[in-house]
Design a protein around this nucleic acid. Structure first.
Length: 950
RNA sequence: AGGCGCUUAGCGCAGCGGUAGCGCAGCAGCUUUACACGCUGUUGGUCGGGGGUUCGAAUCCCUCAGCGCCUACCA
């Protein structure tokens, strides 16, 4: 073993081993391997993103799982990659170009030039996060890194689109969608987050045209949409208003319009809640989802008054035209007041949908979009409900089930440029044109030749091939019919035919999640039945945040069933959310989000990993505190020094252990190792990583370092070193350390590898199973019965050391009671209770920090000698007048009180007649035993107190 | 508004029917020859409130309160 420094310096170690692993292809998965498969696909981070604490948590867990699986002898594929993140990436590039003054709008560049710039941006900033993941130690198979806009991946996306189109699952429809006036695109329901907003509820009155002087009062939060109102609705069962149904009211805005153009009907609709507001609802079909449906039921043509960018249009009238919708709200309210229509304004809190990305209120807007009816819904829902796919923690299964039950069609088109362009070519025809007969005939030739091609003809009257009849009752569309042709973009012949005939490709791109939902198989070479796909699909575990359970997890399950006929993963681990010390979410604006790379630089990647895992219990949010990382650093340093200590003892490495030479301490630590292995295994089985780290922490620090190593010094460097015994102790130490390093490896990959080699433990391992790297060393097995009986390990050894340690703790206590500083060496006297070996005495001396421990079976304590009693006998600390009698009296009195309290508790139970009758025998016996123990302690303390007085 | 979760020592958590525990912080002492990124000792809690079941409740049931998350078209 090479020379080892006093403190662990991760910086000099980590890069070296990462390069080593890469150079030796340790992360590369071999689909031809005969080992059982274990696989994870990474939740692809945004290609231009940077590493956050959330990524650290998520990817550390994946790395732990992957590394553990390798040590378990699995063939592991951890498949990495990045996501093109349509809106986020496009927004960033657009903003940058605007900021530099290069463009005012993306149209200034045009689609192709703009996309060139995005690709440039991606080349420049993309992949930073990949480098950062490497710093963290992520053991991804980088040879298989994928990007959702890779050519092969894009083909998968288009193929799936065309397939679902053919199946009639994808359709085009004019619907109310969530429109983001900043990103200028439609969003799916999942991309809308509800936020509580403080606003105003405006009450205004409208006159009933047929009954002049009679008014209805309407309550609204959005007076700016009044010009878009096409009716007021009341509940037909509402006795106050039912009589007015069929009459008309005069809409107050736009003010300049003549009265007869502002007459709108009073309609009856069960949707209206007569408890709320005034029970009269204004109906704005163009700008409200519910109103749209009411409008639809009553055949009311919508009036659009807000444009795509959220500004009022001409139809909104002279007062509002050109204003931003929020400015318009105020102006509209003022106008109502001015007109004398405003009755009152009340402060009001309601929930408003915000665009997740742009963080502005979305505007419900009628527009033509592509929708997907989800495939394989029932199967996907059942697989979790039946427990064939497990969620950890499982309460998320309920959330999933609930969402799947109320699943809505997915709006998959986005009015963006960065993404997968929708592979549909279409042409509209006016009523006078001859239609599409010629093109259809030509396309049918391709179809007959088995080339993927699907058509939908949209007309006001006919339905063909699953057509959705969108043109009916749509006066805004001025064409007669449209032919949509979905075709795989690789079919260039068809596309040129289409384009020659005046067809153009749909300008929109697909929602980013429409590509991510294929991730588990599209990354593995689908639709080819590749070796990789056969070996590694379905994947074993998925690790992700619960915030994307609908965005991603649910959709992957459905895509998995639809295209692979099988679930995409067997287990889903949902991490918590990383928050700051005060429990706030990490965010850029709060500045409470530490840069993980800074932390790695300061403390090391292992420290960051360990600190994070230690504080991340399953199913709970994580409060990030740099102190945890510091603790991880301290832990690594302790591990480093524990190994350094072993190294300083010299001797040859990993000798055979001779059962005959084992001390009780040796046996004890072997049993503790066994317990630790079992605990860590149990924790892994339940994905409880914080339990695993806690067990390792306790075993290594408290049991191994604090007790075992200190005790073993008796054999290693005591007054009378027995060479054979020393050699045997070193063998035990090597045994424990070599197991421990392996247990640590998934959590602390770098330092464990460094020490594995540094200590020479790799030396006697087979090349592929630990010889080359600890990564493939076999995961420690619990000690079996054969092992235990060969080394004569028994519960008695464990019990003996445990009581001995308790005894030592009490002995150390004597010092404090006597106010003796730790550096004052004192002599203890032991009155042994049974056989006491020289080694036992030596261990006592070391652990008591004593000048000497004198064994004297006939010792008669004089006055002022402190005493404790335990397994090895009675221990005395003679003090000859140095003792602080009062302090000791206080302590003993306190102890007596404690004993009496406990005795009281147990006695009151035992004296309860029904207790003895009803309680199980073992519990009764245990209580009696407990009573005796406390009584014994009481007697002892009482005697000691009496001794002081005497 | 519904659903889920949480409430145990200053902080973060474990325990989930039979003597309230762990880590960190705090306090006191210590250059004990692996480690001050350390060692030794140690102070903190009627387990959110109330009621019930039980011989026995932090643990099971009911109820109230606070916090958090998710779902939802109440203007």
């Amino acid at each position: 073993m090479s020379e080892i420094s006093k403190a662990y310096e991760p910086q000099s170690v980590e890069d070296r081993w990462y390069d080593f692993w890469l150079k030796h292809h340790c992360f590369t998965a071999d689909p031809k391997s005969s080992k059982p498969a274990y696989s994870i696909v990474i939740p692809p981070p945004n290609v231009t993103g940077v590493l956050t604490m959330g990524h650290v948590l998520n990817n550390t867990i994946q790395d732990i799982l992957a590394r553990k699986a390798r040590m378990d002898g699995k063939e592991v594929l951890w498949l990495p990659g990045t996501d093109h993140a349509g809106i986020a990436t496009q927004t960033v590039v657009e903003r940058t170009l605007k900021k530099s003054g290069e463009i005012r709008h993306r149209d200034d560049l045009g689609r192709e030039k703009f996309l060139e710039r995005v690709w440039q941006w991606k080349e420049k900033h993309g992949g930073i996060i990949i480098q950062q993941l490497k710093k963290l130690g992520a053991s991804c198979d980088w040879t298989r890194e994928r990007f959702t806009m890779d050519p092969e991946y894009s083909k998968c996306v288009q193929r799936v689109f065309v397939d679902l189109y053919k199946k009639g699952m994808i359709y085009r429809g004019k619907r109310m969608v969530n429109w983001c006036p900043v990103s200028l695109t439609a969003l799916s329901d999942e991309e809308v987050v509800m936020k509580e907003q403080k606003g105003t509820l405006y009450y205004f009155k409208v006159e009933i045209a047929e009954a002049p002087g009679t008014f209805l009062t309407v309550a609204t939060t959005r007076p700016e949409t009044i010009p878009g109102d096409t009716a007021v609705a009341v509940n037909p069962k509402d006795p106050r208003y039912a009589q007015f149904i069929g009459k008309h009211v005069v809409r107050p805005l736009p003010a300049e319009l003549p009265r007869e153009q502002k007459l709108i009907p009073i309609i009856g609709d069960e949707y209206v809640d007569f408890e709320f507001g005034t029970g009269v609802l204004k109906v704005t079909p163009a700008h409200d989802k519910a109103d749209f449906e009411i409008g639809h039921r009553h055949k009311l043509a919508p009036i659009e008054v807000i444009d795509a960018a959220g500004q009022m249009n001409d139809a909104a009238g002279a007062d509002l035209r050109g204003l931003d919708r929020f400015k318009a709200r105020k102006v509209a309210a003022e106008k109502l007041t001015e007109l004398g229509a405003m009755e009152k304004e009340e402060p009001y809190t309601n929930n408003v949908g915000f665009s997740e990305r742009a963080d502005v209120p979305i505007e419900p807007r009628l527009s033509e979009q592509w929708f997907l009816k989800y495939p394989s819904v029932e199967k996907s829902q059942a697989v979790v409900a039946k427990g064939e796919m497990k969620f950890h923690p499982d309460r998320w299964a309920k959330v999933y089930d609930h969402w799947m039950s109320g699943i809505q069609d997915w709006c998959i088109s986005r009015q963006l440029w960065w993404g997968h362009r929708i592979p549909v070519w279409s042409k509209k025809a006016n009523a006078g044109e001859s239609g599409f007969g010629r093109v259809q005939t030509q396309l049918n030739v391709f179809k007959q030749n088995g080339i993927l091609i699907h058509m939908n003809l949209y007309t006001p009257h006919a339905k063909k091939e699953g057509t959705i009849n969108v043109l009916q009752n749509d006066p805004q569309e001025n064409y007669f019919a449209r032919l949509d042709v979905a075709v795989d973009p690789s079919q260039t012949e068809i596309i040129s035919l289409l384009e020659q005939n005046g067809f153009t490709q749909d300008p929109d791109v697909l929602d980013t999640w429409f590509s991510s939902w294929l991730w588990p198989f599209a990354t593995m070479g689908w639709p080819e039945q590749t070796e990789t796909l056969k070996k590694f699909y379905p994947t074993t575990d998925l690790v992700t945040g619960p915030d994307i359970i609908f965005f991603w997890v649910a959709r992957m399950i459905m895509a998995g069933f639809e295209y692979m006929g099988e679930l995409p993963f067997k287990n889903v681990y949902f991490t918590g959310i990383i928050r700051d010390k005060q429990g706030r979410k990490m965010s850029k604006s709060l500045g409470n989000s530490p840069d993980p790379l800074d932390l790695i630089g300061k403390y090391g990647a292992d420290a960051l990993r360990f600190g994070t895992m230690r504080s991340a219990p399953l199913g709970q949010d994580i409060l990030f505190d740099e102190q945890n990382v510091e603790l991880g650093r301290n832990f690594c340093n302790k591990l480093w020094n524990a190994c350094r200590f072993r190294q300083m003892q010299g001797g040859s490495v990993q000798e055979e252990i001779d059962p005959k030479l084992l001390t009780s301490d040796d046996k004890w630590i072997l049993l503790k190792l066994d317990a630790a292995i079992r605990e860590v295994n149990a924790a892994f089985a339940e994905y409880k990583f914080s339990d695993a780290t806690a067990a390792l922490y306790r075993f290594f620090w408290s049991e191994y370092c604090d007790w075992y190593i200190e005790a073993s010094k008796a054999s290693l460097s005591g007054s009378a070193v027995d060479e054979a015994r020393k050699k045997n102790t070193l063998a035990v130490i090597d045994f424990v350390l070599s197991h421990m390093l392996r247990l640590f490896h998934p959590f602390l990959p770098f330092i464990s590898e460094e020490l594995w080699h540094g200590m020479g433990y790799s030396g006697d391992m087979p090349e592929k199973q630990g010889g080359q790297t600890i990564m493939f060393a076999p995961w420690p097995k619990p000690l079996d019965d054969e092992f235990k009986s060969f080394y004569a390990l028994s519960a008695n050894d464990e019990k003996f050391i445990e009581t001995r340690n308790e005894f030592i703790a009490q002995g150390r206590n004597l010092r404090r009671n006597a106010n003796l500083p730790a550096n004052k060496k004192v002599k203890f006297i032991l009155k042994p209770s049974g056989k006491t070996t020289a080694n036992d005495i030596e261990v006592l001396k070391l652990l008591l920090n004593a000048e000497a421990v004198e064994a004297n079976p006939n010792f008669q304590p004089g006055k002022n000698a402190l005493a404790v009693r335990g397994e090895p006998g009675e221990l005395f600390l003679p003090l000859e007048g140095l003792i602080d009698v009062e302090a000791e009296k206080t302590r003993l009195t306190k102890e007596i009180e404690k004993c009496q309290a406990e005795i009281g508790k147990v006695e009151s139970k035992l004296n309860n007649p029904s207790f003895a009758q009803k309680v199980p025998a073992n519990v009764l016996a245990e209580h009696k035993q407990r009573l005796m123990e406390w009584q014994d302690k009481l007697a002892h303390a009482q005697a000691a107190l009496d001794g002081l007085k005497g």
